[in-house]
Write a protein that binds this DNA or RNA. Structure first.
Lengths: 196, 196
DNA sequence: AAAATTGCTTAAAGTAGTTTAAGGCATCAT
DNA sequence: ATGATGCCTTAAACTACTTTAAGCAATTTT
């Protein structure tokens, strides 16, 4: 069994660990892919066919507005999940892109295969419920910040919460995630240096 | 069986409907409560002990900042769920309040009882997974708007997405949800009237 | 190796949203 | 009934953030 599958099996140990039968099913239903830097696993207008586990590398999910500006909805690095949930379950075209920021290795499962796991094995429903609950909590905290904090506070909080990610990402990408322009982020950083 | 339980059983018909045994368990594990206008079902510093289904009425969940300003994280009206997920599962003190905006009737389940349902019945894990996935999708759309749209666009989109809620809520509450001041919302509304 | 693209910064001018203060109207408690 | 409280609005002054434009360094592509 490849090290990619091991990474995923290890990941599930954080929740309700899989037994032998479930591990076999997992390795039969998930497919490994390597994605180059700037490679897409989802483009606007396409149906999001896969639920993706990131084994190594890093992705961004973003939407593009009328003025062709990109807005980063989420990042996903090692041991994180990424998909356009809405498109994946509805099987309707997505409004978003998912693009590799670094050369990456991923494990993907198709809609029908994930439903198979949900139906056959209580544990997959359980584990994915917990995974999505945790992501909901994270997103709600981000939303609270967005309606209650200044851009500087949101930036500092991003650095604190995702220090590794912050080191790997260009500031333009962080600015897009925070909902500000790269110019203003640069201005914030200047202010922080002066303070320290 | 009270009409409150019927509302919850009907609600689950949108997902995977409950069989007789599950319906009985549900009515044994959920408790009905009536909450007055301005009554709290969660206050900052308390552990959030319940997962709450709103049968009738309306609630807001909000956090209070250092300047004592309230920031609305979410509303929940009929047939919606509300809880501080983070506090509920971690059993640590919550940073938020959940308060009735109208006289309300709710059904609540405690942590241990919900875990019981999850363990015994695959279907509760399944249904709650789907419920939280849908709430995640909604929240992600709101987050996208927050980083990419003006306050006017967010307001119009709120009116479109939650027309019934918009009619029931004072504008101060909507402003807090949108992350703007009531004064600026008033200004936006003036601009919209002039346009039309 | 040269050319093109991307990332970071600076600064000046403009706009979106906040703050403060005030007044009017409605609802609620005494 | 009376005073208090909550809600909505207006307006002037202020601040947080964007836009535009430009320049330089680093990385990527040819």
């Amino acid at each position: 069994m490849s090290t990619s599958f091991n990474a995923l099996i290890e990941h599930f140990k954080n929740y309700f660990p899989l037994d032998e039968k479930e591990r076999v099913e997992l390795s039969e239903r998930f497919n490994e892919r390597k994605i180059k830097r700037r490679g897409f696993i989802l483009q606007q207008g396409d149906v999001c066919r896969h639920f993706t586990f990131v084994v190594s590398g890093c992705f961004k999910m973003y939407a593009v507005d009328q003025a062709s500006k990109e807005h980063n909805l989420q990042f996903a690095a090692e041991n994180d999940w990424i998909t356009d949930l809405s498109s994946f379950y509805s099987e309707k075209p997505s409004g978003a892109y998912i693009e590799a920021i670094e050369p990456s290795v991923i494990l993907q499962i198709k809609h029908a295969d994930l439903l198979h796991l949900y139906i056959r094995y209580h544990k997959f429903d359980r584990n994915f419920r917990i995974i999505i609950e945790q992501k909901y909590i994270e997103l709600q905290n981000r939303m609270l910040q967005s309606i209650s904090s200044t851009a500087e506070e949101r930036y500092l909080s991003f650095l604190e919460q995702y220090p590794k990610l912050a080191n790997r990402l260009p500031n333009t990408q962080i600015a897009s995630y925070l909902g500000i322009t790269p110019e203003f982020l640069s201005n914030i950083r200047k202010g922080l240096i002066k303070k320290s």
